[in-house]
Write a protein that binds this DNA or RNA. Structure first.
Lengths: 237, 237
DNA sequence: CCATTCATATTCATCGGATCAATTGGAGTT
DNA sequence: AACTCCAATTGATCCGATGAATATGAATGG
């Protein structure tokens, strides 16, 4: 194994062993390099790899720190995975997202605070307003869609589940799905499905919420996989 | 944004845009650095970050290549996330794994070839043999357990789902769970649950397979979360 | 003509040092 | 006590050199 890989694993192990704790500052590059027996440039490449994994964070003029190591932080590299597989594997990602989002929505039905239920309604109101404008602001719709799903997932009571869902469909994938909805009817169908999920949550009905969430993601899946000849039929609602 | 981050994103974007395809060789470090307008050391740190993400692969004396970019490759960084959260978040990871593994097992019931059903049986026979020995070889049991679940997941028909499951419980987590089973009865219970999943798969019964898979992971969850005072009761089977 | 061996070129791996830039913290001033 | 400003600290970036692994093609032997 190369010197850099060894250095990476050493730092990783120090974290797993609790020798390095979240938020803790690492020794300065010069000293740490000496401690690990490598050159400063070599250490920097190891640190850079860990920064890419969101395990470490560097601040020029200050130092290098261990991040919070929270699951949502460490799992956000998955977005890129989803993004580069948006051609062949988008359907597979969506399938996983359907499974997880159905469960998370069901869990959230009994946990989401009333205040956030109101906020969900506000998001939907705003989305419908945007969708009604003539030059539809797709970027705004994408952001509102992401907020809607993220807010629900964040109240499922499982940070790991929320993080995986959040990153399962990367920004590029989400953007592409919405951009593919040139048909205004498809946009309205999506908004209706969001409303259905919202109503189920308002009723604190886990099973209804689960079904509507699954159906919603399934609709997106089918809009991507159904052959063009049948798209009109599939998108009718 | 720093020079290195820019270089990383540029290479990423070249891949997303299809400018760089899986398996393709990158220009030599000197040229690529010049092309991106950075020093060679800086480019190396960017490349190193992408290697850590399993996006690029370097071979000394040969060159730097784009990997296959397959989901199972790119998602395997999650193992480390699971490993460092084995204290606080092991239960949350297992919950996600329960959801996904139940679905994957149900899907596999109608897809796994007969030959691999036989192989699953062989794995269970071997595990029971190992468990019967006096100095139980826990390492061997861990490996057989991993093979059992991986083989099922690989036949769910969704590479992304299989990859997420495979990496949801890292090696360290899995090892810790098995090592926690000092009670021989807990080991036997696990093996019985594996047998039940196997029988459901043999019957090609998706719903039975789903239930047994979920129950199996749930058993592991509870063995970790139930207070010590109740462990004996919880582990009785 | 084919297979093997071996020298050489190519390429990444690692190293050491130098300079730039951002942040911090304390000295000095008001 | 609050503010300003400068110097020390620290990471960011660059440069050049050497080592190590691989590929390539020429030379060799069958």
């Amino acid at each position: 194994m190369g010197v850099i890989e060894t250095a990476i694993d050493t730092i990783k192990q120090m974290i797993i062993d609790g020798e390095l704790r979240p938020g803790q500052k690492l020794p300065v590059e010069k000293n740490l390099a000496e401690q690990l027996g490598v050159a400063r440039n070599t250490l920097r490449e190891a640190v850079r790899a860990l920064v890419a994994m969101r395990v470490l964070q560097t601040r020029q003029g200050d130092g290098t720190y261990v991040t919070s190591l929270s699951p949502d932080l460490l799992l956000d590299g998955m977005s890129f995975v989803a993004d580069i597989h948006l051609d062949a594997g988008a359907g597979e990602f969506l399938h996983v997202r359907r499974i997880l989002e159905a469960e998370a929505t069901a869990l959230a039905a009994t946990r989401i605070p009333d205040a956030d239920l109101v906020r969900l309604g506000d998001l939907l109101d705003e989305a419908e307003t945007v969708a009604a404008c003539d030059p539809v602001d797709h970027e705004k719709l994408i952001a509102l869609d992401q907020d809607f799903h993220a807010l629900i997932a964040s109240h499922c009571g499982n940070a790991v589940l929320a993080a995986v869902i959040q990153n399962m469909s990367g920004r590029t994938v989400r953007a592409r799905i919405w951009r593919g909805m040139s048909d205004p009817e498809a946009v309205h169908r999506t908004l209706r499905e969001h409303r259905a999920v919202h109503r189920a949550l308002l009723a604190r009905d886990s099973e209804r919420a689960r079904l509507h969430a699954a159906l919603h993601v399934l609709g997106v899946e089918e809009s991507l996989t159904v052959p063009r000849a049948f798209e009109g039929e599939a998108a009718r609602g």
